[in-house]
């Protein structure tokens, strides 16, 4: 268990973007060390304003629910430690998604983009069903090495918010969906690769990426969606992938 202690008189100033212009947006909360961004939000809710709106669930970086922008950077509130010397932080809702209230956003555009690339494995008909032999990708195969590092997406939308194209609502499928598309296109068991490559080749697809690298820098799981986009760009023209 973490040893949390509070220094006497130590406080943190937190600015929160509120959807109600009349609501308080500056708070001072007691500083604990270590202190996560979610700790600060919970302290505000507990001691200042129970009506402040934000989401969280698992608190261990698995559910992707608590994503917010801290000083402009899209992060998981539960996993982001407030720097030791910080006296003030600013918390905003995710960029590029409609705000429902305060820090709560409607993630529908993110999931619509996700849906557009058929985000599940489409097996061959003969390989499906209870009697079929399970298809295996060997752990040491090149295919597995290509797929594995891109598998852990939790759908937190930090990459979407950090992308200068997707967050500006410029009709872009976005890094997370394209990363998922790359994983499935690379999977030899899947039969919908041609369809996915058609989707990623549209005007909303990979050519919208300007390589800002906000996605790869922001991903809390350490994935590299920009690399997935680079691969998809090549695979469009390479049948031997």
């Amino acid at each position: 268990m973490r040893n949390r202690h509070r220094k006497a008189g130590d406080e943190l100033r937190v600015s929160v973007t509120r959807s109600d212009a009349a609501a308080a947006d500056e708070f001072t909360v007691p500083r604990i060390r270590p202190m996560m961004v979610l700790d600060a939000l919970l302290a505000i809710q507990r001691t200042h304003d129970p009506a402040i709106g934000f989401r969280y669930s698992c608190r261990v970086g698995m559910c992707g629910t608590c994503t917010v922008r801290v000083d402009g950077r899209s992060v998981l509130a539960c996993q982001t430690e407030i720097p030791e010397r910080a006296e003030h932080i600013r918390i905003d809702p995710l960029a590029g998604l409609p705000v429902v209230r305060d820090l709560v956003v409607d993630t529908a555009p993110f999931w619509q983009a996700w849906k557009s690339i058929t985000p599940y494995l489409v097996p061959d008909e003969d390989a499906a069903g209870m009697d079929a032999t399970p298809a295996v990708i060997k752990p040491d195969s090149a295919e597995r090495e290509r797929i594995d590092p891109s598998l852990d997406c939790i759908g937190c939308a930090a990459c979407f918010s950090s992308c200068g194209i997707a967050s500006a609502r410029r009709d872009f499928i976005g890094p997370a969906a394209l990363n998922r598309a790359m994983v499935l296109v690379a999977d030899s068991r899947d039969t919908a690769a041609a369809h996915r490559l058609d989707v990623v080749a549209t005007d909303s697809g990979v050519d919208r990426c300007h390589y800002i690298y906000g996605c790869s820098a922001a991903c809390p799981k350490g994935l590299d969606p920009a690399q997935a986009i680079r691969r998809l760009r090549k695979w469009r023209f390479d049948e031997s992938r």
Partner: peptide
Amino acid sequence: VDDGGPFVSRALLARLAKPGSERAE
């Protein structure tokens, strides 16, 4: 308003001072 990254602030400068992925900003 949109991107969330480019607040010209001490926090941004502190990020850019760190080596690694933060400098991708």
